[in-house]
């Protein structure tokens, strides 16, 4: 941002500091923010893996066998461990952020943020248990 003024003696060009590429290493909160954003990479990657899983499932028993063997490879296990950590971080940060956008009034009083976060966690557990139940009782 260059100063437009021609009068220079007491109003010379201001100095505008530039942000560094390393900006998100400079504060723990910035780092946590970038880590939260990077969870999206794993969410997207897992959506693709789920798609591949469905394709293998519909392609017949042989393709399914091959796919489950692939899932057992160390590379796959390693990826899923990291992906799970990021996915859980995504869930937790998403629940923590939910009260910032949601304003719920019950009996004329706003519901406290902690209650909203807790409600999200309870729904999360119920959803996870339901999916696990449906998938494993086949």
């Amino acid at each position: 941002m260059e100063s437009q003024t021609t009068y220079k003696r007491f109003r010379p060009a201001p100095y505008t500091p530039k942000m560094q590429l390393s900006w998100w290493w400079q504060k723990p909160t910035y780092f946590a923010y970038i880590m939260r954003e990077l969870t999206a990479v794993f969410v997207a990657a897992y959506a693709v893996i789920l798609l591949l899983t469905l394709r293998a499932l519909s392609a017949g028993e042989a393709a399914w066998e091959a796919w489950t063997t692939t899932l057992q490879s160390p590379l796959s296990i390693g990826f899923h461990v990291v992906a799970l950590l990021f996915a859980v971080y995504h869930s937790i940060t998403w629940f923590m952020a939910a009260p910032t956008a949601i304003v719920l009034n019950v009996k004329g009083k706003p519901v406290p943020a902690k209650t909203l976060i807790l409600a999200h966690v309870v729904i999360w557990i119920v959803c996870s248990a339901a999916i696990a139940g449906i998938l494993l009782t086949r």
């Binding site: 504060k27 909160t29 910035y30 923010y33 954003e37 952020a97 910032t100």
Partner: peptide, 9 residues
């Protein structure tokens, strides 16, 4: 805004 939350802190 990408919801970093630093403004409120």
């Amino acid at each position: 805004c990408t919801l970093i939350g630093e403004c409120s802190r």
